[in-house]
Design a protein around this nucleic acid. Structure first.
Length: 352
DNA sequence: AAGTCTATCAACCGCTATTAC
DNA sequence: AGTAATAGCGGTTGATAGACT
């Protein structure tokens, strides 16, 4: 037996709600609560089905709905949560006070998704799109080393340290595509870089043994993230981009959040964040990532738990509105999602 | 000024999960 | 335990406004 319709649709109105209908619905719910949505329209004198009433109320008329532009903080949160939860709009909405799943879904589809695509990031996996992977540009791009690294490396008199794992991965990729009759210049370039890179590493270790004795260069150090790719986790796609995260600043107060948030974490394809320093997963929803990162019992149930989680930073405060900036600014902002930085411990001034 | 294109978002549809009986 | 009713979710559509030609 097929499911009965939620209501008799004959004679019921569809389409946009009029102010009069809105007022009827508001008045009724304020007086009686919504009770059963099925019976509500009749009791409230509305020619609508209960489902339509519920949707109108939850997505538009509810008094606690926050309307208007999304802030930077909110967008950051949406991107991060989406990397973990996927299209679980209601779960994402539960962590954005005053926002509805519909609103977030719309915002994702019309703004964030497009921007990620434009940046060559797969909005589903939150990873660089392999089909767009151009190794030449990859080599000069942020994920391998950023400008500050280049500057510091120059100051140190060494070549910039490329991420050896990523370098190896890219080389492997190209090697697999390499044809003798059609040598790939990118491959040669990568192999050269790999050689130079290992030299640079040893050179660095000679010059600054204190950094290498306790793994300090690779493992952080407060405020430090070095992009690390785990070659074992590179499957046919780039889903497993991960990064060191510092047990530090990512989920601090809201003010710091907007500037540090995206620098500190790179999503590990739908599964949170991998802290390679201690081989643990970091709950990105917790401001106390340092605690979480030491907790081997990380539980994704927390991600899906109720919206009242105390780990949530209220997003209403210190809004920095996304829509206020230009598209370029927003792109630039988004590109920080893939940024990593040299350890602050490597105090440049100390070497000057 | 008129026509076309594009972006946005409210609302709908169809499905699954949960609850009540 | 089985079935129907209800609530909720995610994908999609369509109306509209604004930009562009």
């Amino acid at each position: 037996m097929g499911r009965a319709p939620c209501c008799d649709k004959n004679g019921l109105k569809k389409g946009p709600w009029t102010p009069e209908e809105d007022q009827k619905l508001i008045d009724y719910i304020q007086k009686n609560g919504h009770g059963s949505w099925r019976t509500l329209p009749k009791n409230a004198g509305l020619q609508r089905c209960g489902k339509s009433c519920r949707l109108r109320w939850t997505n538009y008329l509810r008094p606690d709905i926050k309307r208007g532009r999304f802030s930077f903080d909110e967008e950051e949160t949406i991107i991060q949560l989406h990397s973990i939860l996927g299209n679980k709009w209601s779960a994402i909405a539960a962590r954005l006070p005053g926002r509805t799943d519909n609103e977030i879904k719309n915002y994702w589809n019309t703004h964030i998704r497009k921007r990620l695509l434009r940046m060559g990031i797969d909005p589903v996996t939150h990873s660089p799109r392999l089909d767009l992977l151009d190794v030449s540009s990859l080599i000069g791009s942020v994920p391998l080393y950023n400008q500050s690294q280049l500057n510091v490396s120059r100051l140190l008199g060494i070549q910039p340290l490329l991420n050896p794992e990523l370098l190896r991965f890219a080389t492997t990729l190209l090697t697999s595509q390499h044809r003798l009759d059609n040598p790939n210049p990118d491959l040669q370039l990568l192999q050269n870089l790999q050689e130079n890179n290992s030299l640079s590493n040893s050179q660095f270790q000679t010059q600054f043994p204190s950094f290498t004795s306790s793994n300090q260069l690779q493992t952080p150090i407060q405020e430090t993230q070095i992009l690390e790719t785990n070659v074992d986790q590179f499957p046919s796609n780039l889903n497993s981009f991960s990064c060191h995260n510092s047990p530090s600043s990512a989920w601090q107060d809201n003010g710091a959040l907007s500037s540090n948030f995206t620098d500190d974490f790179i999503p590990l394809s739908n599964f949170g964040y991998y802290n390679s320093a201690d081989q643990s997963m970091v709950d990105p929803l917790s401001k106390n990532s340092n605690l979480q990162s030491n907790n081997q019992n990380f539980n994704f149930a927390s991600v899906l738990s109720t919206p009242s989680s105390s780990s949530l930073t209220p997003l209403n405060s210190s809004p920095t509105y996304i829509n206020g900036g230009t598209e370029d600014e927003r792109d630039s902002y988004c590109s920080n999602m893939l940024k990593f930085e040299l350890p602050d411990l490597l105090d440049v001034n100390g070497f000057m």
